[in-house]
Computed example of a mutant assay.
Amino acid sequence: MSRPFDMELFLAGVLTGSHATRQRHVRQAKIIQAEIAGRWKRETPWTWQRKHVAWFLEHRLAERCEVTRYRYLLTVRLLARRLKKSWIFNRHANP
C-alpha cells in the first residue's frame, strides 16, 4: 500500500516567501496535481510532461482572471524548478 503524494514535502526545497505565499503555492500545486491526475492519470509531478502542465494553464484557467493565471504560472515555475525542467510558459498565452 502506497502513501498519498505529499506536495508540500515535494515543494519544500523551492518554496520561499511568507507563510501565506507558501501555502498558496502548495494549495495551487495540489489543484494542478488533481486536474492532471483526473485527465491523464498522472498522479505525481515526476510523471508529468510539459504538455500536461500546458493543458492545465491553457484550458483549466482559460476563464480565470489574469492575476489568477499569473499566480498559477508562478506555482508552475516552482514545480518546474523542483523537477529540474527547463519548461517555459508564456505569461500571456490566454486571452
Score class of each variant (00 low, 15 high):
1 M>W: 02
1 M>E: 14
2 S>N: 10
2 S>G: 06
3 R>T: 09
3 R>K: 12
4 P>L: 06
5 F>I: 02
5 F>T: 05
6 D>R: 09
7 M>Y: 10
8 E>G: 15
8 E>P: 07
9 L>V: 07
10 F>I: 06
11 L>D: 12
12 A>Y: 02
14 V>W: 03
18 S>I: 00
18 S>K: 12
18 S>D: 03
19 H>Q: 14
20 A>K: 11
22 R>F: 02
22 R>K: 15
24 R>F: 09
26 V>W: 05
27 R>I: 03
28 Q>H: 07
30 K>G: 09
31 I>N: 11
31 I>S: 10
31 I>W: 08
36 I>S: 01
38 G>R: 05
39 R>G: 05
39 R>V: 06
40 W>S: 13
42 R>H: 12
42 R>E: 13
43 E>R: 09
43 E>H: 14
44 T>V: 14
44 T>Q: 10
47 T>D: 15
48 W>A: 05
49 Q>K: 15
49 Q>T: 10
50 R>K: 15
50 R>W: 09
53 V>Y: 02
53 V>D: 02
59 H>N: 13
59 H>R: 15
60 R>H: 10
61 L>H: 07
62 A>Q: 08
63 E>A: 14
64 R>G: 00
64 R>Y: 11
64 R>S: 15
65 C>K: 14
65 C>P: 00
66 E>K: 13
67 V>Q: 13
68 T>Q: 00
70 Y>G: 05
70 Y>L: 07
70 Y>R: 10
74 L>S: 12
74 L>C: 13
78 L>E: 12
79 L>K: 10
80 A>F: 06
82 R>F: 03
83 L>E: 11
84 K>A: 15
86 S>G: 10
86 S>P: 10
87 W>V: 01
88 I>E: 15
88 I>F: 05
88 I>S: 13
90 N>C: 13
90 N>Q: 13
90 N>V: 06
91 R>K: 14
92 H>M: 02
